[in-house]
Structure formats: C-alpha cells, structure tokens
Design a protein around this nucleic acid. Structure first.
Length: 271
DNA sequence: TTAGGCCTGCAC
DNA sequence: GTGCAGGCCTAA
C-alpha cells in the first residue's frame, strides 16, 4: 500500500500525538509481527518518545534512551492513533500505549509489513538504512551518476530501493510518465538530460503527493484515519487503456517484475 | 530477469 | 471460484 508520501503522511499525523509523551506499556498481540520475536519492548515503558524519522518507506520512532522501533507498512499496514477506549480493529498486532491515553495501534491484515525493535537508534540505522539509497525526496542528479554504463532497466532499478529509497509501483509509473521515459529503458544509456529530468519529476511528484496526504487507491489511511487526496492527480497508475493525458493514445499495460506497469507507448520511448 | 512465496480481502 | 492488490525476499 504505502510508498514514501503515504509513510510520510503517517509520520506527520502521528508525530504530534507521540512527541514528548511517555510510554505506558506495549502490548504485543501477535508475537511474530515483531522482529526479533520476543524483543524486550517492555523496556520502553516509562521512556519518552523524542523523535520520529522516516527514510524511504521505513518509519522510525525513537525514545529518549535511544530505543527505536521501525515500522514497515508492507502492502496493507496501518498505524492507528486512537484513544484507549476505541474498539480494537481486526488484525491489530501491536499496541503502544501512551500515558496521554492515546494508543498507537499497528494493524496489517496481510502481514507483509512488520515492526522491528532496536536497543539504539545507531543500530537501527545501520541495519535498516545500510542497503538503501538516499531518500527519494532528497535525491540529486549526482546520486544517479553511477547509472552511466550500469546495467538494469529503469522500472526495476527505481523499485529496488538501492538507488533511491521510497518509490513503489504508483510513483515509479507516475515519474516515468512525467519524464517521458520507457520503463524498460536501460539505465546505463540514459542521457544526462534524461537523468536531470527524472530526478526533477521524482521529487516534484513526491512533494505534491506529500502535500495532498498521499494516494488512496482503496484502503490507505493516515494515522488519523484520513484518506490521501492524490489519487485524482494520477496520470499513469491505474489508467491502463485510457487515453494518455498528453497525446491521447491509449496507455499500455505490461508486467515488469510481476508488477502491473502503465505507460504511454507514444510519449515514453526507449533510447 | 522472472516466478513464486508470503497473507488477507475485495471485485468480478 | 479466479485474479488482483500500494512490498519485498528467495530461488531458479
């Protein structure tokens, strides 16, 4: 479900409810939702949340003594910020109870996501961001310079998180449409003008999506249960067969890396 | 590179 | 019933 803009919106809606608030306890409903299984989360009791942070699609909550929780929402993960009395929804796997009376509930029907516990922020960083590229909101052209002569196709490389962290199926298709690049274009053969353009549109589309609270295709909601409003701005994702908004030709659909990919056969050409 | 697996829910 | 879904990992 969530890509960078949705995770960022969850972070932004969550932060004011957890910052400088003391943890009253953690209830683990489903042990195997957390890594490592049996992590000493009770040590969080009495600690104060001092920071939230996001890199790519990963969301971190950091306590005053450094203990860190990393949340990955997978496809169907949700963070629900509610008062303790609210009825517990199905597939609620972990509940962080705060002294304010607020509960942060992690819910994930498909369980592709998860919660990771680290005794320190440094360890969380080393483990969780080591293999990731720079955050997609902050990429620059120089971050993609190593693409020159490299192998691999655009869509796969953009989805991999190793070059850029935060893009998923929606925003890759949107970015490639905006940059007029074919998803199967070899990255090593991009011109520097094309790379400059790509970096520009990636940042632009993500900034706009963040500004609208992300994209709700079906069930994404932020921590306060509000949907994102970017769906009506989508140019490619979900529009297979519909006319290209630039040239009018029907958008094509194909499978790349077993993900449905939508692109314009006229506007988006390989080199 | 692709296919399959992990899971549940929903549209058809 | 079938196929599909915003992620990501592994194996062939």
């Amino acid at each position: 479900m969530p890509e960078l803009p949705e995770v960022e919106e969850v972070r932004r809606t969550l932060e004011p409810h957890v910052m400088n608030v003391r943890v009253a306890g953690v209830e683990v409903v489903r042990e195997d939702f957390m890594t490592p299984i049996g992590a000493p989360v009770q040590r969080l009791t009495g600690r104060i949340v001092v920071r939230t942070w996001r890199h790519g699609k990963k969301l971190f909550c950091i306590a005053d003594d450094g203990q860190t929780l990393m949340i990955h929402l997978g496809m169907s993960g949700r963070v629900d910020c509610v008062s303790a009395g609210v009825k517990r929804e199905l597939h609620t796997h972990v509940i962080v109870k705060l002294e304010s009376g607020t509960e942060v509930r992690l819910r994930d029907p498909r369980r592709f996501g998860g919660l990771w516990y680290y005794p320190s922020f440094e360890k969380a960083l080393a483990k969780e961001t080591g293999g990731l590229g720079p955050d997609a909101l902050e990429i620059t052209t120089s971050d993609l310079m190593h693409w020159r002569g490299a192998k691999g196709r655009l869509k796969q490389r953009l989805l991999s998180q190793k070059d850029i962290a935060g893009l998923g199926n929606i925003y890759v298709d949107e970015s490639l449409w905006l940059a007029k690049l074919h998803p199967r274009q070899e990255v090593g053969r991009l011109t520097s003008e094309q790379i400059v353009k790509l970096v520009k549109v990636i940042r632009q589309v993500l900034e706009r999506a963040v500004g609208m609270g992300g994209t709700t295709v079906r069930d994404y909601r932020n921590a306060l249960d509000q949907p994102g409003r970017f769906a009506k701005r989508l140019k490619a994702y979900g529009r297979g067969g519909k006319p290209c908004l630039r040239c009018g030709k029907p958008l094509k659909m194909l499978k790349i890396a077993s993900r449905t990919t939508v692109y314009c056969p006229l506007c988006q050409r390989c080199r």
